[in-house]
């Protein structure tokens, strides 16, 4: 009997650890085919994470220099926004900043993987002020980056043109171990 109870508890725990489907209804988010993803649409307030967690607050959620989160209206949970909708290594703060302190609806993907410690993490795909009918796609990171760095225009992905990244690569290489090691490793890896 004790074994059965234990197995049942393990089964329940395993089911609960995979995804969080509580906010799936009404979501039109696109799948990224991630193991830990679940569609999620909910309402909440856009907040400065540093302010919300530590009490160290600045105006306008840090003007883009601070990570943002969503204080979910239904349960008061602070959702950590990790990612926007673009598949180019970009976070979600730029897309949420226009809504700092405002009530919004969001649609996207929650990440839940208790083995890795992922809980209440979010990829935002769409955002709108609560009460509005019109969604805005959370895909503005590159537009902002180009506006901030007009001299870095050109062909290719932003991460190939970003001169701060280029300076690091020129200093320590693609593996971060110094240029001499970098050349040795590349010869070994790509031989």
């Amino acid at each position: 009997m004790k074994i059965l109870v234990t197995l049942g508890a393990i089964a329940l725990a395993s089911t609960a650890s995979a995804q969080d489907y509580r906010f799936e209804e009404g979501s039109n988010a696109r799948s990224w085919n991630l193991f830990a993803e679940s569609n999620a649409t909910f309402s909440g307030t856009v907040v400065d994470l540093t302010c919300e967690v530590t009490g160290d607050c600045v105006d306008n959620c840090g003007d883009g220099a601070r990570q943002l989160g969503i204080l979910r209206a239904s349960d008061g949970v602070l959702v950590n926004v990790q990612k926007n909708a673009q598949q180019v290594f970009t976070g979600g703060a730029r897309d949420l900043l226009p809504f700092c302190g405002q009530e919004v609806d969001v649609d996207g993907l929650l990440l839940t993987d208790e083995d890795l410690g992922a809980v209440n993490m979010y990829l935002v795909q769409f955002v709108r002020p609560t009460g509005s009918e019109d969604w805005t796609e959370a895909n503005q990171w590159q537009v902002g980056w180009q506006a901030d760095n007009p001299d870095w225009a050109g062909d290719g992905r932003w991460y190939r043109r970003d001169q701060d990244i280029r300076a690091q690569l020129d200093s320590t290489g693609y593996f971060g171990l110094g240029l001499e090691r970098d050349a040795e490793i590349k010869a070994e890896v790509f031989e």
Binding site: Q82, V88, T90, G92, A93, W158, Y159
Partner: peptide, 8 residues
């Protein structure tokens, strides 16, 4: 890339 791209 992710650090420069604003990922936590």
């Amino acid at each position: 890339w992710c650090s420069a791209g604003g990922i936590p």
